[in-house]
Design a protein around this nucleic acid. Structure first.
Lengths: 226, 226
DNA sequence: CCGAATGTGAACGCTCTGTGAACGGGCCGA
DNA sequence: TCGGCCCGTTCACAGAGCGTTCACATTCGG
């Protein structure tokens, strides 16, 4: 986890303690140039800026963090009650704010929610398994970064299998879960689709779909074998 | 401004007063079905959900609001201190939270920031995607700098698709989101509009709208990153 | 070594989509 | 008020994609 940028330096003890308790690495700075100088290799993991004592310096920092080529996100500002109205003109400078003095648990909850937003909030729904990636929003699949041109049923079958790695499904189960409950076709249909999937996955990854003789098919490695 | 959805009904007097003072229209509901029944024509402008007294009902409402075809945003939940930790497993259900009891100015500031955030995403008067530019203010479209002469529905459809590049939409979804909720026409209507759009986009860019067989249509290439 | 289960290739036929055309309602100018 | 035009919608048809099936080859287990 990348360390958080904290302003000002030294950080108030209650903030330092709160961050340490929650397990957030952090580093305090006194100004913009120091923030740039102290920046970790992977960049800041976010910023906590206390505006209560030095609003000018605080929002100056925020502005600088936002203007960078790779903006620092998320930015959380700590303000006192009298500054709440001042936030109106500075919406673009922060992602969330918290009243100062703060309750450690509230700060914690806000940080967690911010990280969630930054991470999984905007991410498309994906089914991943090793080199295979299925994008459920765009109905596209790729393996080793190379896009797979799958038909509808192939995609649906692969999606189902990849969503339950290691589990064995009988042909009947697959027919009912992928094709639909009241499906009245032959079970060999599954075989053909598996064959085409294996072909499209390429020789290298054809083994991703394993045959379990007399039972059905399984995606990915078994938990017992190598 | 679209009215805010408030849960529960009746709304606590301090919340009602706070919203009225800030000039937010609002309407309180007791459950999900009432929220749907009472929904304004243009949809809810957001939601304020008090989880302090009835967490189950509150987060149930949140979940329902998020699962809709057109999610209600933003969602702000009011929690008491003891519920802060419960938020961890419900990140996807809300956009921001505020401690209950609340300071009117803090609630105000949070609402304003939420609206600012929401407006920022939907407000840019330009929708751009590669060579395609849609000017939402003047209802004009251009590709490669050359103006496109689009009819109303063509424009609306293209706007919607281009606003969600890469995502696949079924014909039914497009009908409900572009044409309107209670549209009762045939799904093939979408096909014809797509055909005309492709024709007007020109042979060079006709591929911008892709057919996903057995599913629907997709605009542009998928985004694998971010 | 035999039978069952699975892989393989090919062909059939249905479903989905593209396409051209016509219908009809609404709007605007005459 | 009437007539024509624009445009959204619907329909019919044709082509292609693709799911399904079948026959045959191959493999696996007993």
């Amino acid at each position: 986890m990348d360390p958080l940028l904290v302003f000002p330096d030294p950080a108030p003890p209650e903030l330092a303690q709160s961050l340490d308790l929650a397990g957030h690495p952090w580093k305090a700075v006194t100004n913009v140039s120091e923030a740039n100088a102290q920046e970790p290799e992977d960049g800041w993991g976010g910023a906590i800026v206390i505006a209560a004592d030095d609003p000018e310096g605080a929002f100056g920092i925020c502005r600088a963090l936002r203007k960078r080529d790779v903006p620092v996100e998320p930015v959380l500002v700590l303000v006192n009650g009298g500054q709440l109205d001042d936030l109106a003109m500075r919406d673009e400078l922060f992602d969330d704010f918290c009243l100062w003095p703060f309750q450690p648990r509230e700060l914690d909850a806000r940080l967690r929610h911010l990280f969630w937003r930054a991470g999984r909030g905007a991410q498309p729904e994906l089914v991943e398994h090793g080199a295979l990636i299925l994008n459920l929003e765009t109905y596209q699949a790729a393996i080793d970064g190379k896009p797979l041109d799958l038909t509808y049923m192939e995609y649906e079958l692969l999606k189902f299998l990849a969503s339950h790695p290691g589990k064995v499904f009988t042909r009947e189960t697959l027919l009912s879960r992928v094709w639909g409950y009241e499906y009245y076709g032959g079970a060999r249909t599954v075989d053909v689709h598996v064959r085409r999937l294996r072909a499209k996955l390429g020789e290298e990854h054809a083994g991703l779909i394993q045959t379990v003789r007399s039972v059905g098919y399984r995606f990915g490695q078994s938990r017992w074998s190598v």
